[in-house]
């Protein structure tokens, strides 16, 4: 058994589904290979932790009594409807944006001119910087799911073909290869997302319609950032807790890149025209 085969068996071993030779080979490998043993122990620890800390609770008596009473009532459907009344807002959605807001507590995240008719939540959603930061966090944490996984730029380009109304660029990044992409929308405006990796490091690229952002009705961007971009220069920010954020335009497309590295490092991977690069932000 090699390390890759071992990894595939970890979950079955944790849940005690391995038998006979499979089981023997698994534990032999665990004995010989400290790294694999560690991986096995980690997963087993999580299971044990849940079993120990989150015990099964009994259904509250009021609930069982209520069910018996309701199914015996003349009109259980009326009760059903009252229970199905939609909750005011998705808790998860709210929590997600709050988490993102907490992570990216940055001056420029604050929308420059608060629109009178929108809540802070929707204002934040319309902000392209907050949006791309949220997507980046979401992809890494597993909130967001890629719709296509491929290292072939042509395959990824074909995926976006005809779906966006602005050209999506699948850039060649120095040293990095694409791994996947997804497409979603905000206020009806398509957003393209691409992820590149190299040796376990990730570069995330966000693209949307530059005209729509300039127009400012559906998607917003702080004025100072817009000014920089309109002057043909990239907007660079390094204040993301060790991550760098770079925005630039390419024809009708607004592109953003986020990665856990310094600005010089990130710039060296991006296909930005030398001429457009400033000495500083």
């Amino acid at each position: 058994m090699n390390c890759r085969q071992f990894e595939e068996q970890i979950t079955s071993a944790v849940d005690q589904y391995l038998q006979g030779d499979d089981r023997k080979e698994f534990y032999d490998h665990a004995f010989r290979c400290p790294q694999c043993r560690k991986a096995f122990e980690r997963e087993r620890f999580i299971k044990t932790l849940l079993q120990r800390r989150l015990r099964i609770v009994q259904t509250p008596h009021e609930i069982s009594h209520a069910i018996v009473a309701e199914t015996g009532s003349t009109d259980p459907d009326a009760l059903l409807h009252s229970l199905q009344a939609p909750s005011p807002r998705s808790h998860r959605t709210a929590r997600f944006f709050l988490a993102v807001a907490a992570v990216f507590v940055l001056g420029f995240l604050v929308v420059s001119s608060p629109s009178p008719d929108s809540s802070p939540l929707s204002a934040q959603r319309a902000d392209v910087i907050a949006q791309s930061a949220a997507m980046y966090a979401g992809l890494l944490a597993g909130w967001m799911k890629p719709q296509i996984s491929s290292a072939e730029p042509e395959v990824l380009e074909a995926f976006f073909e005809g779906k966006t109304g602005f050209p999506v660029h699948v850039h060649s990044l120095r040293d990095y290869t694409p791994v996947g992409a997804l497409l979603n929308e905000a206020s009806g405006v398509p957003l393209a997302h691409l992820v590149y990796t190299s040796n376990g490091k990730t570069v995330y690229i966000y693209q949307t319609c530059w005209n729509t952002v300039q127009d400012g009705r559906k998607l917003k961007i702080p004025d100072q950032v817009k000014k920089t971009l309109c002057a043909g220069r990239p907007y660079i920010d390094e204040s993301f807790d060790g991550r760098t954020f770079i925005l630039w335009t390419e024809g009708r497309t607004l592109c953003g890149a986020i990665a856990r590295m310094g600005q010089q490092d990130l710039l060296s991977h991006l296909p930005l025209a030398e001429a457009s690069l400033p000495g500083a932000r």
Binding site: Q84, P86, S87, S90, H91, R92, T93, L139, L140, G142, K145, P146, Q147, I148, S149, V179, G180, L182, N184, E185, V195, T197, G200, T202
Partner: peptide, 25 residues
């Protein structure tokens, strides 16, 4: 009750996600 407001892709290949997460963790 809890479907998120944002539309999520509804056709997702879990093996792909698996690979993807392994790569971009």
């Amino acid at each position: 009750r809890y479907r998120r407001e944002a539309k999520e892709p509804d056709t997702v290949d879990y093996d792909e996600i698996q690979n993807f997460y392994n790569t971009i963790r």
